[in-house]
Amino acid sequence: MARPAGHIALMVPNPLSQSDAYANTLSALGTEVRIDRVAETGRCLIQTRHFPCLGPINLISRGPVGSDQNAASEYLRSLQVKGPLIVNTGHRAPSIKGFIRLTRSKSVALLSLSTRDRMRANLHQNWRNALKRAETVALRISNTPYQMDQHKWLIDADQAQQKIHRYRNWPERVLSTFASVNPGQIRVISAYHGKTPVSGMIILCHRPWATYHLAVNTDLGRNANAHHLMIWQAMLWLANRGYTTLDLGLITGPPGLDRFKLRTGAVRHDLGGTWLRLPKPLMPQLSSIQVPSGQKA
């Protein structure tokens, strides 16, 4: 049964792409959003985009959430939408009836937030030692709501970083829209040496989870282990406000970044890959479609 965004109480887990904060952002940008109840405790956010000639394309990213695997599979099997349905499942799934697998699964790093002592004890020894060194350096850490004019230096640095490393992040318009419709839920963690910013990081808040969105560094920040201190301060800030999980994002390399994420005490959580269901007139052709050998999500 479809409900308007925000109607169903948030349940854990709550990845960004299944959150009310994300639904608010998509709606403000003109994307059609629907949130369904799944069984007694679950929910699923579906986004629909309309394309000339193609018509509606539906996407479920890391959903459904809050229900067991059987209920989630039954929901996806019986879900009625117009046009193709693409599902990036949030858990490993050997198969989904009526769907063809397009890509294999990836993994994300999920960090449980609790007490200061417990989180400190869960740090890998090398990560904890780097944090100790950072705590002795003359760095000032700030945690402020995102403001486009005030944090232009961070966005410019990230855009330059994207060109160098050949990846894509949210366009600035999406980030600004998220900030506008979810006041105070984008936190900018910055490290300063004197008055000069040497490292920056953006955390997206969507209770009871938060998501590590982007980060930039300088040689001075890197040598001072600024990112260790910034993540640690973010962990404390979120835990003190009742957040339960910090999603550190995909574990896809480079190896140093993966180690940085997992050594915070985060655990590797396997997603379920990408699946496609075509409209009924095209369903008989599914059996003849093959995923290219070795293709990865």
Rank of each mutant, 00 (worst) to 15 (best):
Y243W: 06
E135I: 04
I86V: 02
T218Q: 11
L229M: 10
V38M: 11
T115C: 03
A130G: 11
A5V: 09
L262C: 05
N70L: 12
L54Q: 02
I251E: 03
K152V: 01
S287Q: 12
T274K: 03
R187G: 14
P145E: 02
A160E: 13
Y75W: 15
A39E: 13
L85F: 04
I164W: 00
N129E: 02
H193N: 03
P197G: 03
G66N: 12
L250Y: 07
T25P: 08
I231Y: 00
N143W: 05
A28Q: 13
V12E: 05
L123A: 05
S176G: 02
L214V: 04
D158V: 12
S17E: 01
G273N: 05
H227E: 15
W153D: 11
N143L: 10
Q159M: 15
D219F: 02
V65H: 08
H50K: 12
N225I: 00
Q290I: 14
P13H: 02
L79F: 06
N88V: 06
W127G: 04
N225F: 00
T264K: 08
S27K: 15
D149P: 07
T103G: 13
T196K: 06
L79Y: 13
V181D: 12
R43V: 09
V188S: 01
A2W: 08
R207S: 12
G30Y: 09
H269M: 08
G55D: 05
R37H: 10
I202D: 02
G184W: 08
T274Q: 06
L26M: 11
E40D: 14
K82F: 00
L10R: 11
S27A: 14
L271T: 12
D117T: 03
Q69L: 09
S27W: 01
M119Q: 13
F178P: 09
Q150S: 07
G6Y: 07
A72S: 15
S67H: 01
I289T: 04
T144D: 08
E74L: 14
L59N: 07
I96Q: 11
A266D: 01
L131H: 00
R140K: 15
I35S: 04
Q233W: 04
E74M: 11
T25Q: 14
S73G: 12
T218E: 04
E172I: 10
G249I: 15
Y212W: 11
V216T: 11
L123K: 10
A134W: 00
I189W: 12
H124T: 00
K132N: 06
H227L: 15
A179G: 10
D20Q: 13
Q69M: 13
T89I: 11
N225D: 06
S287M: 09
D270K: 13
L16D: 03
V198C: 01
T144G: 00
V291P: 09
Q159S: 13
Y146R: 07
L154G: 07
P94V: 04
P64G: 04
S114V: 02
A157M: 13
M1K: 10
V137T: 01
I186C: 14
P183I: 15
A5S: 12
A297Y: 10
N182M: 03
T196Q: 10
D247N: 06
Q125C: 07
L139A: 04
M230H: 03
Q295V: 03
S293F: 10
